[in-house]
Amino acid sequence: MRQKLVRPRYLGLVLLALLWFLLPIYYPSGYVVSTAVLMGIYAIIALGYNIVMGNTGIYSFGHAAFFGVGGYTVAILTVNHGVDPWLAFAIAPFMAALAGLLVGLTSIRLSHFHLAMATIAFNVILTNLNFNWIGLFGSESGIGPMGKLSIAGLRLETDFRYFYLTWTFVVIVLWVTQNLVRSHLGRAMAAVREDEVAASTSGVNVVGIKLMAFVVSAFLAGVAGALLAFYMPYVGPRPFTVGLSIMLFVMVCIGGQGNAWGSLLGAALLTVLPEFLRTVAGFPAIPQEIRMVLSNPSYHLVVYGLLLIVFLTYLPQGLVGIRLRWWRRLIQRQPAAAAQPAESHV
């Protein structure tokens, strides 16, 4: 039998990716592309957060803080100290990883609930320092104006160009996280999630692996933070609040915990959701009260909350779970007794 070069399921994926990369040609600027850029940035953090939450089973609610460390590193270095943009871009993930290491060292040994509280506290402290402590990191209005990145003399100042930079990073991060998850380190993370005791007597350094997951995901949040910083005119505390940390949690939950494609899907959906809700609110048939809720961004948390409840109750494996279930039904051997060999040990 002749082997196919590209398996059909990957072919679909490649086509989809190609189409996606053509998007800015149809919409060179404006709302669609800028949403797509944000989508890419959220996708990068979600992919990193998925390693911590989905793969390792650590429920951190402070990941937006590492995102912020990345963004602020870039802003402080370039605006206040005149550092070269790309150099600042390269330093940012390492600063975020360092922050991840410090938070991890203090909180990783805590139980689920306490770790969640500690990371929320960390996030609140870090963003509030910037909101209220005027003078430290440029107050609420932020640091700026931000410079732009350029590649070979080409300034990445349009949404069109920035789209390609961002999504190139998404593809790289997707590749890297998939490699990690499929390696022995990724398996060790999954083992820690499944059973810490058994993992430890199997030779897995539980605290070490958790820290590693934490630091890697903080690093990726730093990459996303740097990307966001060069996309915005000013870097302020608003994008890095606990609200985003919770949104990341929702993204990974509805996409599918422990599945990179799920994280991408979750990030994409939640980036588009506010727009979708606003469009729905525009329909004349929608009653006035509901329209108020749908069009006001501060009520969107209600929708996230409802989504989370629905998914955790009925689809704990997220959207990719639907596909996996269907896939498994297709490939799994029939559990009928006839399939068993006549003589079976134990």
């Binding site: 398996r187 999954a190 499944e194 059973d195 199997s202 030779g203």
Partner: peptide, 20 residues
């Protein structure tokens, strides 16, 4: 105490973690 959500093969390879 197995890693329930992992395949048998993966369970066994985790046991070999110290050799990687």
């Amino acid at each position: 105490q197995l890693f329930a959500a992992m395949t048998c093969e993966e369970n066994v390879i985790v046991g070999a973690h110290r050799h990687f």
